[in-house]
Design a protein around this nucleic acid. Sequence first.
DNA 1: GAGTTAACCTAACACTGTTCGGTTTCTCAG
DNA 2: CTGAGAAACCGAACAGTGTTAGGTTAACTC
Lengths: 199, 199
Amino acid sequence: MPRPSTPLLSPDRIRSTALAIIDRDGLDGLSMRKLAAELGVQAASLYGHVRTKDQLLNDIASSILSAVDVTGFTVDWREGLLRCARSYRAALSSHPNIVPFLAYGPAGRAESLQRLDLLHGALVSAGWSRREATMIAAGLMYIVFGSALSTFSSGFSADPADYSDRYPHLDRAHLLPGVARELDRDSFEMALAAFVRGL
Amino acid sequence: MPRPSTPLLSPDRIRSTALAIIDRDGLDGLSMRKLAAELGVQAASLYGHVRTKDQLLNDIASSILSAVDVTGFTVDWREGLLRCARSYRAALSSHPNIVPFLAYGPAGRAESLQRLDLLHGALVSAGWSRREATMIAAGLMYIVFGSALSTFSSGFSADPADYSDRYPHLDRAHLLPGVARELDRDSFEMALAAFVRGL
DNA sequence: GAGTTAACCTAACACTGTTCGGTTTCTCAG
DNA sequence: CTGAGAAACCGAACAGTGTTAGGTTAACTC
């Protein structure tokens, strides 16, 4: 099948299909051949629209991060921090399987930097020193990424026998997967509130 | 070379060599063939001592996590949280390249669970509810893992031109790589202090 | 000294990201 | 309306990955 009348591929279609695969099968579940098959195409054809797989992932990451809202600093800086962190986490947890990639690679994405710039500026004009502003922004990212990796609630076994004997204080840990989402959100809110309150 | 007089391989030697490669070349820099070559052996020979690569990484992770100290709760729970978090971060940041793997997989490692059990119990006997204890432990992990991923200071370009035009508040971001380690530690300490104070 | 087992090997399988060269169809200038 | 060139796809290949099967030899055990 050479050069069809209407193109089968476009960067947008490739990106959204790739993201769908990641959401469905995890980060390791995405391969160029599988992506191509899902688009009704051979793997080599993708490289006419995408430079490399890494670039593709970066583009997807950027489009996810562009949903982060940092415009909440008009009220005061505490409220701004809360809103920014919530928006960041919401963006990440809408596609949790790609978070390891975000956390892995360098923070050199334009979307990240632009938002970081606004955040930093808002903190400085609220009276923090530049160094303090940097550390506060870092601390906020710790909580956001730490919570989005969701290493915590999910990842527990659903079998009570895995815990009851060896770990007496975790005798209800097998219930965690059932309430993971809710508990993760509440833990995030608690950590965020404690952090901002303690500044 | 069949069955040498003294064995070339042992689980310990494999683990430590693998960890050395990870420390030197990063997580992606570890392949079974490269590991085998470094041990003076063919790749297939490793599988007499190690079940799979994933299991090998898990074993390495466990040995790193076994250095985490959660015995600081004899004083009071705040001090215990601080010590536990510092010890955890120290363990992770002594081998930063393996942290993405830790953050990726499930938290079902015996070493993690045992420490989590102690932490949870200490918080409950300090008067927190079980749910609160779980959320506090989760929040602590957020900060520890978020900071150990060190997505932050490292990952910035060392070229001022990358920032000065587009991101006015980040005009000194190019200095970050030079002080990354120090700044990351200070940011962690600040986030941890703020979190514990705000509880 | 014979038999078993442990430790290594070579060769292969099925996969990965990526590139090269080829084929066809579309687009556009003359 | 023709001819040139680019665009969009494909098949085949390369070097790499984790892993397994089957073979060879040395060391241990009785």
